[in-house]
Design a protein around this nucleic acid. Structure first.
Length: 271
DNA sequence: ATAATCACCTGCTCGC
DNA sequence: TGCGAGCAGGTGATTA
């Protein structure tokens, strides 16, 4: 479910409901997520005041004076604010009860998500330490992509989805940005020109910003923190459209697999 | 260092 | 209608 726009939509959705709240209790029903949820999470968080909800890449962070709660939604996770009496659903793994009486609830069928604790004072958490720049920051641009890609033979799509290069570009938006920039996803990253990387960086920013504005892409049952669906899916140009006509030239879109991820492109419009 | 593959897990769709 | 195969938004770990 969540790509960066969905995570940012979640952050914005829950922020007004959790900021200024104290944590009353944490209940972990299923600790087996991508990594085990710490057994002492309740004692670590009980009574703590939530002051802000941060996002780094696709991680959501709740910073406290004694440490940071790190959350990731994986492939199928969602984080919602519900009323205390809201019925429990299958795969509702963690509840963070707030002083308002409401609950921040983590739901994640596939359990690729994570909820981790990182004590203050230590070095940056290993999961966050090696990450590339945020795609919407100014330091992410064509010059940066060009410099980092020299000599690399991996497909430009894999390069773009590598979190060490830039964070937050998942399969949907990689497909979309490469189409809009006119670059074949299977071209070696090291053979893409500076001018084309300029276009690619611009398209990455544009497609992500536009999707965030519209509340993320609705796939299956994604809902943001406030429970409302996103509205971006209808605007996808290539993702999920293999075999259908290209919106630009009308030819049939190709669908291949690149790094075991579904990859859709137009061999006429993308070179 | 880089590239490619595997792994984690549930649910859904497809073809037989 | 049932059943196995394959695939799904992510990404760390492992292997060459």
């Amino acid at each position: 479910m969540p790509e960066l726009p969905e995570v940012e939509t979640t952050r914005r959705g829950i922020e007004p409901h959790v900021c200024g709240q104290r944590i009353v209790r944490v209940t972990v029903r299923q600790p087996q997520l991508r990594w085990p949820v710490p057994a002492d999470l309740d004692s670590l968080l009980q009574g703590q005041l939530i002051e802000q909800v941060q996002r780094r890449a696709k991680y959501l962070l709740l910073p406290f004076t004694h440490g940071t709660l790190i959350m990731h939604l994986g492939m199928s996770g969602s984080l919602r604010i519900v009323e205390a009496q809201h019925p429990l659903a299958k795969h509702d793994h963690v509840d963070i009860e707030l002083s308002s009486g409401r609950v921040l609830r983590l739901h994640d069928p596939r359990r690729f998500g994570a909820m981790l604790w990182h004590p203050a004072g230590d070095a940056m958490h290993p999961l966050l330490a090696e990450l590339g720049p945020e795609p919407l920051d100014d330091e992410f641009d064509g010059a940066y992509l060009f410099a980092r890609s020299r000599g690399r033979s991996a497909p430009v799509k894999a390069f773009l989805m590598d979190g060490h290069i830039v964070v937050g570009v998942g399969n949907i938006y990689a497909n979309e940005a490469l189409f809009s920039a006119g670059i074949r996803p299977d071209r070696a990253a090291g053979k893409v020109s500076r001018a084309r990387f300029d276009a690619l960086a611009d398209e990455v920013k544009r497609v992500l910003a536009r999707s965030i504005e519209q509340g993320g892409t609705t796939l299956r049952d994604f809902v943001g923190g406030d429970g409302n669906p996103g509205y971006f899916k209808q605007q996808l140009l290539v993702y999920g459209r293999g075999g259908q006509p290209c919106h630009q030239c009308g030819r049939v879109l190709d669908e291949i697999r690149l790094g075991q991820r579904s990859t859709v492109f137009c061999r006429h419009c993308q070179r």
